[in-house]
Design a protein around this nucleic acid. Structure first.
Length: 208
DNA sequence: TAGAGGATTGAT
DNA sequence: TCAATCCTCTAC
C-alpha cells in the first residue's frame, strides 16, 4: 500500500506566547507556520519576518499602557490575534504575547507561501510567487486575515501557528530597525525587526 | 464632532 | 514621490 507522507506540525501551546521577552518570541516565530482556515479553504505560510512591540516603548499602540478599543486585546493573555486596519485599507496581523496586563505583540511582516497557493493567488491577484506574502498587508491578504480574526485564539481552528521542527539558528537571523515608526524617537532605533537571512520574501532590506 | 494621521502598497 | 482610503484617536 502506498503511504502518503504527512507533514507533521504541532500547534504552538499557549505557554509559547506567555514569555515576557517579546523579542525572543519574535525570533522564535521565524520558521514557524501560520495557518488560516476559512470554510474548507486552508492556506499557510512560513513566517520569515517579524517585528516586536512592547508597552514600554513609543512605537507600540499600547505605549504607557494606553488601552483603546482597537488595542484592548493586547492587554489580555498571550496567544490571541490582534488585527487592525492600517491606512484605511490594509489589515495587519499581530500575535499577542506576555501575560494579562502586559501589552506586547509581534507583527508578522512576511510569510513564505506554503499551502493553498491557488487561493492565495486569487486573494491577492498576484501571479508571481515572490509577490505573495512579502509584506504585512500582503501576508494578511494572502491568508484571508481580516478584522473578523480579531481576538481569536491562536490554538483554535480558524487561525493558528504550528511548529514544523524548523529551527532557525541565530546566525541565520538578521535584526534591524523596525519600519514606519520614525515618530517613536529613540525607540525607533531599537533593532526589533527580525528576518531570515537571504530569504526571498523579506518585505524590505535593512536601512540601518 | 471635526480634523489629523497612520506598524502599507502600488503606480508614476 | 505620492495618492488611495477609512478607521482611530485626540482636541475642543
Amino acid at each position: 500500500m502506498k503511504r502518503i507522507k504527512e507533514k507533521i506540525g504541532k500547534k504552538l501551546d499557549t505557554s509559547f506566547y506567555d514569555n515576557n521577552d517579546v523579542t525572543l518570541i519574535a525570533r522564535q516565530l521565524l520558521g514557524k507556520v501560520l495557518i488560516t482556515k476559512t470554510g474548507k479553504v486552508l492556506t499557510s505560510g512560513i513566517i520569515v519576518e517579524t517585528e516586536a512591540y512592547s508597552y514600554k516603548e513609543r512605537g507600540c499602540h499600547a505605549y504607557q499602557n494606553k488601552m483603546t478599543k482597537r488595542n484592548a486585546i493586547m492587554f489580555g493573555d498571550g496567544g490571541y490575534a490582534y488585527v487592525y486596519l492600517c491606512y484605511g485599507m490594509h489589515h495587519l496581523f499581530n500575535v499577542v504575547t506576555n501575560k494579562k496586563g502586559l501589552a506586547e505583540a509581534v507583527l508578522i511582516r512576511a510569510i513564505q507561501p506554503l499551502d493553498g497557493m491557488n487561493h492565495m493567488i486569487n486573494r491577492t491577484g498576484k501571479k508571481l510567487v515572490n509577490a505573495i506574502g512579502n509584506g504585512p498587508g500582503k501576508t494578511s491578504s494572502a491568508l484571508g486575515i481580516k478584522l473578523n480574526h480579531y481576538g481569536l485564539p491562536l490554538n483554535g481552528n480558524v487561525i493558528w501557528i504550528e511548529d514544523h521542527g524548523t529551527i532557525i539558528g541565530s546566525e541565520e537571523i538578521v535584526s534591524c530597525k523596525r519600519i514606519g515608526i520614525d515618530y517613536a524617537g529613540k525607540d525607533a532605533h531599537r533593532k526589533w525587526r527580525f528576518f531570515i537571512k537571504n530569504n526571498a520574501w523579506i518585505s524590505k532590506p535593512c536601512n540601518d
